[in-house]
Write a protein that binds this DNA or RNA. Structure first.
Lengths: 225, 225
DNA sequence: AATAAAGTTTAAGACTTTTTTAAGATTTAA
DNA sequence: TTAAATCTTAAAAAAGTCTTAAACTTTATT
């Protein structure tokens, strides 16, 4: 969950902000002065800073300058002054965005979204397949359930990739053998069964109550409904 | 010089924009319709898009959707509608920022600045990649662990640079060979293994207890978790 | 309910891939 | 041109995966 530092001296506004952020699944941390903010910031872990301009201790401008001196966290400034002079100056001095007080909750959330999306390391590719709560990471060659890795072997991964790219198809052993092993299927082969078993075992370890691979008796296997 | 695509059907505004951009050392390219923009975009090279919402051919919203479908170029929308509804929707649907028409030149320039700064991380930061306690110094062509140099060879450095720029991806030997050696991979080649081994040896000398490069059996290598 | 057929699981050995070492070939730098 | 560094090849050792086989379980059929 993304930690957001809320730098705002007005307790009423601060609480309102934190409440709003919590409701939208962020983890807000409140700082009530510029100095307090500068104490909290180096401990890191913040994905974004919401900064009120008028602060006791240090002004928002000073805080902004110090943040920009050493950190790359995105900063959205809350300001009552919306004249072009001020806002332009703000953007120039390192703010990533600003929003006028009083602000609209949805616009604030949208702007937070944009900054977080921007700041997030550019995911090289969203190369992934999904099935229920499992993600098959095609770059990482592994399956994940809420971030936990299954540790698939190559064959296991390839079976899953094949099946997940056609989630409604039932794969015969013949199908699987030809795609994954790349040869013709010799009827009396138990290899696939063993691999499916291992695969289920690894997925089961991540999420004991979910069935991912379904047996279709007399035919083969498919991804569960 | 940064190329900026100006998508605006009003010739007067378009020229004014291009003139402003030229004066500030950008290279503006004008598109006078959504369809024209979509023809120009794939040819790439644009650092930023200025998008008017009301367009002939395709609406701005459609153009925005198509851009977001495949490109990561930042988009600033020019809009006359500034109600929260519209602007929030814009940001949600992939715009990076918007500016109200008629706009203030300085504010526009500031916002362009912000987006370009965001899109192209500052070079000082670009000049290094980090992984655990190791820093890959792209200027110095070497890896460092608390200031100590690994003394990488060219190939070793390039392997590490490739892998560290996609820290979650598993690189097959094919991947590595094609990127680092620049040719096609000849399956029975042990060269990469030897280089990885040497590389690990040098990193190990700097930090004996840290694993930097992880083997993914049957597939390839990746940066360790 | 008994039987046959199909699927599942386990464990051990076969097999493949990776690691390491060392020597020879090639490239780079002085 | 020579010396040094780097790269490639080769081979043996180490590590991990895959297949086989056998015992067990579930499902379908008579």
């Amino acid at each position: 969950m993304e930690k957001i530092l809320v730098i705002e001296d007005d307790i009423y506004i601060s609480e309102m902000l934190c409440e709003l952020l919590k409701q939208h699944n962020y983890a807000p941390i409140a700082a009530y002065s510029g100095t307090e903010a500068l104490l909290l910031l180096p401990q890191g872990g913040f994905s974004l800073v919401l900064l009120d301009l008028m602060l006791p201790g240090k002004t928002g401008e000073e805080v902004l300058a110090e943040i920009r001196g050493g950190l790359s966290v995105p900063v959205i400034v809350l300001t009552a002054r919306t004249d072009k002079e001020t806002t332009t100056q703000l953007l120039r001095s390192g703010a990533d965005d600003y929003i006028a007080k009083p602000f609209d909750n949805n616009e604030l959330l949208a702007r937070i979204d944009v900054q977080l999306r921007r700041a997030a390391p550019p995911k090289s590719e969203m190369a992934q397949l999904r099935h229920k709560d499992m993600v098959l990471d095609l770059d990482g060659f592994d399956a994940l359930v809420d971030g936990k890795k299954a540790g698939l072997s190559k064959r296991e991964f390839e079976i899953l990739r094949l099946m997940m790219s056609h989630p409604n198809k039932v794969f015969t052993k013949n199908n699987l053998y030809e795609s994954v092993w790349g040869g013709e299927f010799w009827g009396d082969d138990n290899t696939i069964n063993v691999h499916i078993s291992k695969l289920r075992g690894k997925l089961h370890a991540l999420s004991p109550d979910t069935e991912y691979i379904q047996t279709v008796w007399g035919i083969g296997f498919k991804m569960s409904e």
